[in-house]
Amino acid sequence: MKFAVIVFPGSNCDSDMYHAIKDELGEEAEFVWHTEDSLDGYDGILLPGGFSYGDYLRSGAIARFSNVTSEVIKAAEAGKPVLGVCNGFQVLLEAGLLPGAMRRNKDLKFICRPANLKVENNETMFTNAYEQGEVISVPIAHGEGNYYCDEKTLEELKQNNQIVFSYHGENPNGSLEDIAGITNKSGNVLGMMPHPERAVDSLLGSADGLKLFQSIVKSWRGSHVVTA
């Protein structure tokens, strides 16, 4: 399986993402610069964390109008797995691929530490290797992760099981309903504030994030049977 790691000016978790795919997951990965206007040939799209365009105006707002983001939207519409982590999540929200928006953390602080997450839905292409209700430890690192959406949208998220990860035990940023990660309606686009790519080896403190990437591969292999 071949992954594209999208790189905007100001992305800073792109190398971590690349390392997670290449060295820990053992799949193919390539960096794709934001000026590129094709994502043909990639099976999965990864939008890493960081501060695209310096977070000017709003986090993710400028990246949303990059060349490559139009291609990310096309890939999402074609049903390819699209994962946005942290700033990547913010870009997906700004691009309208996921509903809602991010506010500043309720205590106005940038938070960088491990967080406990609960797997709220293990029947997605991103979570099928987890147990339903499993609690995992994945680092968070953000100043704007306070998820918000209106009541109608929240109702839809719940009805369609789009809330995939929630903060367990303590809500670090004030996000609505403890939301840490959501998918789109069709389930092939996941945005999450915690960084699974930083939790892929016990040497890093946790390997709980690796199963997320393994889930993507498992689901992809299931629908792309290799013919001998």
């Binding site: 105006l57 929200l93 700004e94 928006a101 506010r103 959406c149 209106d150």
Partner: peptide, 8 residues
């Protein structure tokens, strides 16, 4: 389209 995010 850009300057404001009308969700919030």
């Amino acid at each position: 389209r850009l300057l404001a995010n009308t969700v919030i």
